[in-house]
Design a protein around this nucleic acid. Structure first.
Lengths: 154, 154
DNA sequence: CCGCGTTTCTTCGAATTTGAACAACATGCC
DNA sequence: GGCATGTTGTTCAAATTCGAAGAAACGCGG
C-alpha cells in the first residue's frame, strides 16, 4: 500500500471538531429527552419517522435503514415502545413476513409532548450557535457525505 | 413557556444532515477499525489520547472528559485494553487516589499499526468528500459548538 | 490537627447494541 | 409447479454503556 496521506492541520481540526461536536451534542440531546420525556434519542427518532410515515406505518427493515441501526436493535426498541403503548405492530399487506410499525394515538401524543423541548434543545445546542452561511454549508456538505454513504452501503 | 420556535427547512436540513452523517460515518469507522485492527473506535481514541499525552500518561478523569464518556465507561475500556497489554495503570505522583493510564510499548505498536487504515478510512468517508472551504467552515463551526458545550458542562 | 464537604476511581445492576443463527416466506428461473 | 437463492423479522449470547452507590483520600476552614 502507498504511503498514508495523513491529515494536515486543517483536516485534523475538521475531523476532531466533528468528533467532539457529535459526542457532545448527542449527549446533551439524550439527556434532555430522557429527563423531560422519558425517551432515548433512538426512541424519539423512531416516533418521528413513524409520524412522518402516516397511518400506514413503516416496515421494520425500512425503518431500521432509515434510522441507521441494526434490525435486531430495532426489534428491541419497537418492543420497548410497544410495551409502553406508543407504537403498534401490524401485518404487512403485501408480505406475510413483513411487520408494519405504526404510531398509536398515545405515541402521537407523546411525540407532540416531547417535540417542543427537543427542538429547543437542538436549537440551543447546535442550530442557534451557527450563522446562516455556516448552516447552509453544514447542510450541504454533510448532506452530500450522507448521500454518498447511503448509496455506497445500499 | 413561549411558543416553540420550530426549525425551518434550512435548519432542519442541517440538523438531519448532521444526524445522518454522524451515524453513518461512525458506523463505517467503527467497522473499519474492528476489522483491520480489532479495536473499537472508543478504544482507538483512548490510544490516541494516551499517545499524545506522552510517557506521563493521563489521569482517568482527564481522559474521560477528553473522550466525552462516563468515568465508569472508561474504567471498563481501560480494563479491556490493560488485559490486552496495550495500556497500563500506574500510580499518580500527586494524588494517591489518582490512576495514571499510560500506553505500553505494545500499545504504541498497535496504534502505529492501526493508524494508517483509520486515517485512510476517515479520508474516504469524510475529509476527501469536502472541499477546502467546506472543511474550513466545518472545523470552525463545529469547533465553536464544541467549545461552547465544553465550557457549559465544565 | 480535625472534621466535613469534594473528588477520584471502581463496582454494581439495568438497559442497550450488535452480529450470527434461525425459521418462515418471497422471488426468479427452469 | 418446483427448486435455488435471497429477504424478513426475531432470538440469542456477548459486549458495551450509563448512573448510582461506595470506599478511600484530598484539602480547606476553624
Amino acid at each position: 500500500m502507498a504511503t498514508t496521506r495523513w491529515l494536515d492541520e486543517r483536516e485534523m481540526a475538521a475531523w476532531t471538531a466533528f468528533l467532539e461536536a457529535s459526542h457532545r451534542v448527542f449527549r446533551v440531546v439524550e439527556q434532555q429527552l430522557k429527563e423531560d420525556a422519558g425517551l432515548s434519542h433512538p426512541q424519539y427518532e423512531i416516533l418521528v419517522k413513524l409520524a412522518a410515515a402516516g397511518d400506514a406505518g413503516l416496515r421494520m427493515t425500512e425503518l431500521a435503514e432509515s434510522l441507521i441501526t441494526s434490525k435486531s436493535g430495532l426489534t428491541y426498541q419497537i418492543g420497548q415502545l410497544e410495551k409502553r403503548g406508543l407504537v403498534a405492530r401490524g401485518a404487512c399487506p403485501t408480505d406475510v413476513r413483513g411487520v408494519m410499525a405504526t404510531l398509536t394515538e398515545e405515541g402521537t401524543r407523546k411525540l407532540r409532548e416531547a417535540a417542543p423541548g427537543h427542538v429547543t434543545c437542538v436549537r440551543e445546542t447546535l442550530i442557534d450557535g451557527l450563522d446562516r452561511a455556516q448552516l447552509a454549508v453544514l447542510a450541504e456538505a454533510l448532506g452530500d457525505i450522507s448521500a454518498r454513504l447511503r448509496e455506497k452501503n445500499a
